[in-house]
Design a protein around this nucleic acid. Sequence first.
DNA 1: GTAGATACTTGAGCAACTCAACAATCGAGG
DNA 2: CCTCGATTGTTGAGTTGCTCAAGTATCTAC
Lengths: 138, 138
Amino acid sequence: MSDPLVPELTDLVFQAAGLLRNGFNEIAADLGLTAAQGLALVHLRGRAPMRELAEIMSCDASNITGIVDGLERRGLVTRQTAPTDRRIKHVVLTDEGLYCQNRLTTEANNRAAALFAVLGADRRRLNDLLTAVVHQGR
Amino acid sequence: MSDPLVPELTDLVFQAAGLLRNGFNEIAADLGLTAAQGLALVHLRGRAPMRELAEIMSCDASNITGIVDGLERRGLVTRQTAPTDRRIKHVVLTDEGLYCQNRLTTEANNRAAALFAVLGADRRRLNDLLTAVVHQGR
DNA sequence: GTAGATACTTGAGCAACTCAACAATCGAGG
DNA sequence: CCTCGATTGTTGAGTTGCTCAAGTATCTAC
């Protein structure tokens, strides 16, 4: 009764994710960023409190401190205390940070596009199928 | 000219992989294993030289030493020097190791099956699409 | 039998992560 | 006003996973 397709599917998802992740990490490394720093940078839409970053990356807040420290040392980001609530520190992209973010997202997107191009119009189909799976997982 | 579907697809693949990985890690943790130990255990088909494990998990051989140390401490695995080439140490499952491996694979498979069940007969379709993508990546 | 390759281990070092404890700040009830 | 409890971020300790360089033991080929 167990479907032999399931382990295969699991493996394929891991492999596809691995390809995408390796691509992303390579680009990040080219920019002198660790994988976690790259991820944090990409997830910054303009500005965001540390807390929000922690939730997005689903990790402890104390972890974000170190990652943002690195981004700040590289001059890609600054911390700005929110005037309305001085507990909160907004992580704000600098000009160079914005440039890095753009390169990271567009180059990662290019690589991903090259990977998915083989599907042609079936990309829509893959999108639907994966959406169903991910939606099931919650 | 850039397809807005590509970032979405990338995100979906990461999310699906994340769901599967979290499931696996949880089961491994229940068995008192770290994620890497669980992975190594699952990839052991009977016996394998350390070297082979390193290739399968695509990491440095020295990393495997530590992981297998942990598995050996837990009594799931023993090191056996190969008689034909005494440099090589085979990692061999103990009875308890075999039991853990079975629980890990079957429970992970059950979780994955629950996730993919929503697709019905389209699982085959997803399999084909992902195969094409992964194949493109090499 | 010696030279070079191969398999594993060890130790140093780093990144990422968690947890517990802490300081600063906010908000609400008395 | 002002104290109590909650919230934000930081720090420090400790673990895991990983890499690299160096070392040991063993094999292979000349």
